[in-house]
Design a protein around this nucleic acid. Structure first.
Length: 316
DNA sequence: CTTCTTGTTACTGA
DNA sequence: ATCAGTAACAAGAA
């Protein structure tokens, strides 16, 4: 599932692809996947430019030239896939942007309650070139060079949202410190965990405390720091907090280096899987041998409402 | 058929 | 106030 390393991978991919490009078309296939009215959403994007891409926690933040922002949260199964697909039809289309836009990118809004798979139209001029659209595609943005950004989301928990600068700030200010940002240091971690009686696992998952860590990396971080995820954080001494801090940075950086973890649905902006799954030491390894002590001690329990894997021998 | 999975929020009860 | 636990959301896998 997309956590910080996966969103960061997508961010870096998209920076290379769409910065400076003009959005000439917006297709909303599932109304439920956008947080604004279709009218506002389309109006805010059409004929604007992608200026920069940021990220806080698991939230992707695309800056538009008119100082509005397109926020994207992938939740569990969301994907942002960029494709440059020149079709025969597109090449033969009448020259001129207006005609092209009219032909290919008329707005399409579907009822958000029906679960029916949208009928794939025959190869009409409207759809030609949308080769990467699939039954889980919820929104398509089209750029002036005829490349497209597909927002796919099987389970439809993810969303896209247009936000003003103020609205964007309000959302990001509610989030905790980004787990990877430079200003997040050991002192801040100590301050955040001081007096908290919750378990380590639940605090690592709490986006209002530290933003970006999800179920996979929470377990991997606890294993790397040799800490029992069931521990109350206020009883962690300085030495353990230092280990925890080091592991947060180390695991996330390593996962980014390997372009994230694909367990089921995650793919990057190029449509490729991440390579970090083979480095996972506890997630999905219950009943297997511990990579550290070698014992058959990887347990799976439910903690903070989530499946939690850890080595009952190494993690204290 | 049931149960489980994911991120996040809302709610309940201690 | 603070915590743990659970339901809800959607869709599919086992």
């Amino acid at each position: 599932m997309p956590e910080l390393p996966e969103v960061e991978t997508i961010k870096k991919d998209l920076e290379k692809k769409i910065i400076g490009k003009k959005i000439i078309g917006v297709k909303i296939i599932q109304k439920k996947s956008i947080k604004n009215s279709p009218n506002k959403f389309i109006k805010a994007l059409k004929n604007n430019y992608a200026v920069s891409i940021g990220r806080k926690g698991k939230l992707l933040i695309l800056e538009l030239n008119d100082k509005n922002y397109l926020l994207a949260h992938l939740r569990m199964t969301g994907q942002l896939v960029y494709r440059l697909e020149l079709s025969i039809h597109a090449q033969n289309a009448p020259a001129g942007e207006q005609a092209f836009a009219r032909l290919h990118f008329e707005e399409e809004v579907r009822d958000n309650h029906t679960r029916a798979i949208p009928p794939r139209r025959s190869l009409s001029s409207e759809d030609c070139g949308e080769k990467s659209r699939n039954k889980h595609t919820r929104v398509i943005l089209c750029f002036e060079d005829r490349s497209r950004l597909y927002f796919n989301d099987l389970r439809r928990f993810g969303y896209l949202q247009i936000a003003s600068g103020k609205e964007k700030d309000k959302i990001t200010e509610k989030m905790g410190v980004d787990a990877l940002c430079e200003s997040f240091n050991l002192e801040i971690l100590k301050k955040l965990f001081k007096d908290k009686k919750k378990t380590l696992k639940s605090l690592l998952l709490d986006q209002k405390i530290i933003a970006g860590i999800g179920n996979i990396y929470a377990d991997e971080i606890c294993f790397d720091a040799k800490l029992d995820p069931r521990r109350k954080v206020n009883e962690l001494n300085d030495k353990k907090l230092q280990r925890l801090y080091n592991s947060i940075r180390k695991i996330l950086a390593s996962a980014i280096k390997h372009r994230g973890t694909t367990f089921s649905d995650y793919i990057d902006a190029n449509g490729r899987k991440g390579n970090f799954a083979k480095f996972l030491k506890v997630y999905g390894r219950e009943k297997e041998n511990c990579k550290n002590c070698g014992k058959k001690s990887i347990q799976k329990i439910k903690l903070a409402g989530r499946a939690t894997r850890f080595c009952g021998n190494c993690q204290r």
